[in-house]
Design a protein around this nucleic acid. Structure first.
Lengths: 164, 164
DNA sequence: TATTGTTATACTCTATAACTATA
DNA sequence: TATAGTTATAGAGTATAACAATA
């Protein structure tokens, strides 16, 4: 008795009742929540490989033929250059990537995946994909595709002009 | 010269070239990026009120007639109970919310907004909405609506069964 | 015995500034 | 003078465990 009008649904917890609140309509809120769930899933899928989402992002790009500099990674991933340093350090220690000097600019390092790095990147990508597909499977196929294109539009709109 | 094949577009930075990478197709990645941009905007909009997104969430719910317990807030906002404590502490010190004892369970506190709290919640909500609308206006109206319903589906799917 | 709110603590993430070597 | 990478450091955010009061 004397429960706060909350029913033990076992999974979603007692906060259900609050979905009726205005906050539940807020796109920023929904985005944050969806992202938190997504993040948890992806990191769980990557745990087997002892990396997290950020390492994975760096590794995945390094595994292409893009040959990104650390600066480019920093800009693309919206991370501080110093964060890239520690990510690359970690991946390099594990023998998954190497830093190669850029012949065109001796200040710059180009980050490239080793064969093992490429292999792990593929495995990790598969694991992430399985996990994601499972989650997004609760959406109609059409919605999943639409979501991608919508997010790409939003994610690509870097006009910070209005933010600052 | 000797630039790393990067063009100074002035805004988006040198990472543009990497959009071609597989990572750019990853829904989790896009979600994370869109969320980061959204977060920056919302927090910027809230800076005038000296609160951040988390305070706002708590305040906005406290400003309804839902009369949530801290536990409910913790579950709904997916934050640790101890985090709710400090958020409520801050809001309470500013006279925006009060902790009222729940007559049905003397262990529990119910968080309710004061009149000033309600007023600030409204102002903050307006500011957030303006900022959001501005951002989402780059989307076709139909997409903005669709995004809301898709995110609601995703955000509501708490079946952590597959995650843990 | 279990739960609510609280405190304390440690760990991760993020942001900033300063330094070096190159440009 | 400006830029790429690095280092150090401090702050914010997050997670965990333990405790008192109550159920």
């Amino acid at each position: 008795m004397a429960e706060t009008s909350t029913e033990s649904t076992g999974i979603a917890g007692g906060g259900d009742r609050l979905w009726g609140t205005k906050v539940g309509d807020d796109l920023a809120f929904l985005l944050a929540r969806a992202n938190a769930l997504s993040l948890a899933r992806v990191n769980a899928a990557l745990a087997d490989f002892d990396i997290k989402i950020r390492h994975y992002s760096v590794l995945a790009i390094a595994a292409t033929d893009a040959r990104p500099s650390q600066r480019e990674l920093s800009e693309f991933l919206q991370l501080d250059p110093s964060q890239i340093v520690s990510l690359v350090d970690y991946l390099e220690k594990r023998g998954l990537v190497t830093r190669e000097p850029d012949p065109r600019d001796r200040r710059a390092n180009v980050v490239v995946a080793t064969p093992q790095g490429k292999q792990l990147a593929e495995q990790a990508r598969d694991a992430v994909k399985v996990s994601e597909d499972h989650w997004f499977s609760i959406l109609p196929q059409e919605d999943a595709e639409r979501l991608g294109s919508i997010l790409r539009t939003l994610a690509g709109s870097n006009d910070l002009a209005t933010t600052r």
